[in-house]
Computed example of a mutant assay.
Amino acid sequence: MTAQKALDRRNDVCKELQKLYLKYKDKGLEILGFPCNQFAGQEPGSNAQVQEFCRLNYGVTFQIFAKGDVRGENAQPLFQYLTEQQGFQGFDPAHPYTEMLTKALKENFPSYLEGDSIKWNFTKFLVDREGNVVARFEPTTAMSEVEAGVAACLKTAP
């Protein structure tokens, strides 16, 4: 994946997540953002810089936590748990970034393709009100599918 394509995708996803948050927050949705610099150095700034960037450029109002690892031996315990509960779902073959992302991973991070670990930024997990991990959405999952999962979890119409 080229740097520009990765940046474009981040822009799109941040905007889509904020839109989803605004639509469902009054029904109980919380979005928790966990920046990670393990994916081609996409989050090089300090915690404060990352948070400010997201708020200024994308209008993000959901909570953004400190940067940390989401894969490997230093993965935060939360992400160890999430990936144990919901394994890798595969990339959506119809998504326009799937071919590019798969190629970039094979060429630059082949070990990332192994097992159930998080493969790339913007992997999303849906956790219900009781703390059960009910779904995992890979970065190539359409936001409409994420929204349908959220609506079902919150028992509302999308």
Rank of each mutant, 00 (worst) to 15 (best):
M1H: 08
A6M: 11
R9H: 13
L17R: 00
Q18H: 08
K19C: 04
L20F: 03
Y21A: 09
D26T: 06
I31P: 01
G33E: 03
F34W: 10
P35W: 01
C36E: 00
N37M: 04
N37Y: 01
Q38S: 03
G41N: 08
Q42H: 07
E43K: 00
E43L: 05
G45S: 05
G45H: 03
F53R: 05
C54R: 00
R55A: 09
N57W: 04
N57Q: 12
Y58P: 02
G68L: 01
G68Y: 02
A75V: 01
Y81H: 13
E84I: 02
Q85D: 08
F88T: 07
F91E: 12
P93W: 13
P93D: 15
Y97E: 14
T98Q: 11
M100H: 13
M100S: 14
K103N: 07
K103H: 05
N108W: 06
F109L: 15
Y112G: 10
Y112T: 12
G115Y: 10
K119H: 09
N121I: 05
T123M: 13
L126V: 10
V127A: 06
N132D: 12
A135R: 12
A135T: 06
R136F: 08
F137W: 06
P139I: 09
T141I: 07
A142C: 04
E145W: 03
V146Y: 06
E147F: 12
A148L: 07
A148I: 01
C153T: 15
T156C: 13
A157N: 13
